[in-house]
Design a protein around this nucleic acid. Structure first.
Lengths: 349, 349
DNA sequence: TGTTAGCACTCTCAAAACGAGATTGCCAAA
DNA sequence: TTTGGCAATCTCGTTTTGAGAGTGCTAACA
């Protein structure tokens, strides 16, 4: 059973999450029925503030949870029951017939975003570590062709080229053969240097050698490196913290557009203690919290799913929902793919 | 030579574009040297206001150009000289060695955005009208594979699948052959219905027929339809109109995320008269202007490039820059591609 | 000893009041 | 037709004010 102080802290956090208003002793009496007077609550609040769980926005107005308060709430006070509606909707998606990994993840994230009113973001490991498994050249017209590169993690990059001369079909084919033979299994980061060693081969066998060589080199040099997908951004526009303050809104959106910074924040305290990590407030951005979880599914090795929103978010709902979705996704793909993956990982923790 | 009234209108528009402040008669005297008194300017302003070229934000403060005023300015008063810095940077990009269409367009847009402080957006025609030219299945592991679909416009869609059974290589191959043979040249919009007719073929030749059929059907049904790319969104955060008003910022960002609405606005007055169209203020959004131009390059048939920002933008610079970039891009790809390829396509329409 | 009622005090927030400054419109003179 | 002068108007930032919410403290109470 919770102590009275814990109970009061819990009620304050929950009231503030709902109303976005600092909560005073009287409010607490009115809304939740606590079996003591407002004066008692005040003295408890005073104590909680001294211990660092609560803050005041100014000398004399209701209390607001501090980061420490939120953390304590998340670890000790929340209900930890998964919202039934989320369960239902996720099961609905997962019970559909065969579908692509991309679509399953997309729809799961959209549910998460919609149910929590937060943005969700899926972050794959850096493509640069992937290995190339296929290069293909598809002619579109006499002088245009699209090159398609696929990595072992299912990342697909495509580049369309326009060339001076009519494309020599035979040349193109033998070129692709050489490239595939020699580059399959090469890490993306190694492609450029490895190409150098292949140059002579291309020079020998192919007529338009320089053009093709240059084109492929360009493509490799500008291989897009971020594997990031963002859903439910609109939800943030509705959060009062952001809807009323363009500067704050700007800062969240910039964070979401900046995979590097994002990844850094998530990896920072990668203690592996919890399945789900909660980052309350950032160095540069006090108003934003990130709830993230590792996920390991095909096409997203060492990936993360994260929910992003104002510091004042319904952590109970968000954390349980994210935990649930990650579990279900890994289970879904593990069963499907017959992989051992995540059950084992849980145990080894 | 401009009449005095035109000259005053021109100065007002330009002053307001720079300062974002309503401009009064005294300001005009101080900043630009006009050879008459403030009283005269006032009476001219009065007249311009009655004619609908200017507006007041309130009874007694400086004037602001109206939509009509902007339009008149764009059509009659602007300088029409292309910014040299833009020319230089664009030529710099275009003079690079062979590079992909995607990269050229990306870099051109980034220059446009950076030089004009606006967001730029590239909009292709609806993928649904494209024709499929290639389907490929690339195995990633024993039970996962990525399917890659390429259309005649160089649009590439990919879906990763996880299946129960180990993938039967032979089956997969013959399936791909059937699909390629039968579906090449089919419009994306027709894929689902055409698949029905192919079903028996797959059933006859392939062991895992149902799984494969379902997977492909799912992929076709959820074929992403928007071919849209957005650059320089950050520029908008810096525009005072949006930096100070979260609601306005929200509205632009929503517009940018909504290809349908965007396309509707652009197509609306598709008079083909001008290369570049200017849309000042929207029905639903008075604060946003769109400067758009048609562009026809490989991978972007019937496409548009548009610059988006606050109504108060430097139309002279923006319009000339966009005109210039579109011209140069088409020239670049036409020369490179040897006119015929895409001119031919034009004719057969 | 822990709890409560009472009360003075503090601080915010919204509305009202105010004054400086900018700009206009108009009129009469040049 | 242009100009100088002037009263009138309106915004905007600052100050004032009062209501309201909430606190902290203290003395009484169980």
């Amino acid at each position: 059973m919770l102590t009275r102080k814990d109970k009061i802290l819990k009620l304050i956090v929950e009231s503030f999450i709902k109303s976005a208003q600092p909560v005073g002793s009287q409010t607490l009496i009115d809304e939740c029925h606590v079996d003591c007077s407002s004066a008692t609550i005040r003295s408890e609040m005073n104590c909680l503030e001294k211990e660092g769980f609560l803050e005041k926005t100014h000398t004399s107005s209701g209390r607001v949870p501090s980061s420490k308060g939120y953390k304590y709430y998340i670890d000790n006070l929340r209900e930890k029951s998964v919202d039934e509606e989320i369960k239902f909707q996720i099961q609905n998606v997962l019970s559909a017939k065969i579908q692509s990994v991309e679509d399953v993840i997309k729809e799961s994230c959209e549910i998460l975003s919609h149910m929590t009113n937060l943005a969700s973001i899926v972050l794959g490991s850096d493509v640069i570590e992937d290995k190339l498994v296929s290069i293909q050249l598809i002619p579109l017209s006499e002088r245009t062709a699209t090159a398609v590169f696929v990595t072992d993690q299912g990342y697909v990059e495509n580049k369309t080229f326009v060339v001076n001369e009519k494309i020599n079909a035979k040349d193109a084919e033998s070129c692709m053969k050489i490239l595939n033979d020699r580059l399959k299994g090469t890490a993306i980061s190694e492609l450029v240097s490895k190409m150098e060693t292949i140059k002579p081969l291309i020079n020998d066998y192919i007529i338009d050698h320089d053009v093709i060589y240059q084109a492929i080199m360009e493509a490799f040099m500008k291989f897009a490196a971020d594997r990031l997908r963002l859903y439910g951004k609109d939800e943030l526009y509705e959060q009062p913290e952001f809807a009323n303050d363009a500067q704050k809104l700007k800062r969240v959106l910039e964070l979401l557009d900046n995979p590097d910074e994002f990844k850094r924040t998530i990896d920072e305290k990668n203690t592996d203690n919890h399945l789900v990590q909660v980052h309350i407030g950032n160095d540069e951005n006090d108003d934003v919290s990130i709830v993230s979880a590792k996920i390991n599914v095909p096409g997203c090795k060492d990936g993360n799913i994260a929910l992003v929103g104002p510091t004042r978010m319904d952590y109970d709902k968000v954390v349980t929902a994210l935990e649930y979705v990650c579990q279900e996704l890994e289970k879904y793909f593990a069963v499907k793919g017959g992989e051992k993956s995540w059950k084992k990982k849980q145990k080894t923790k």
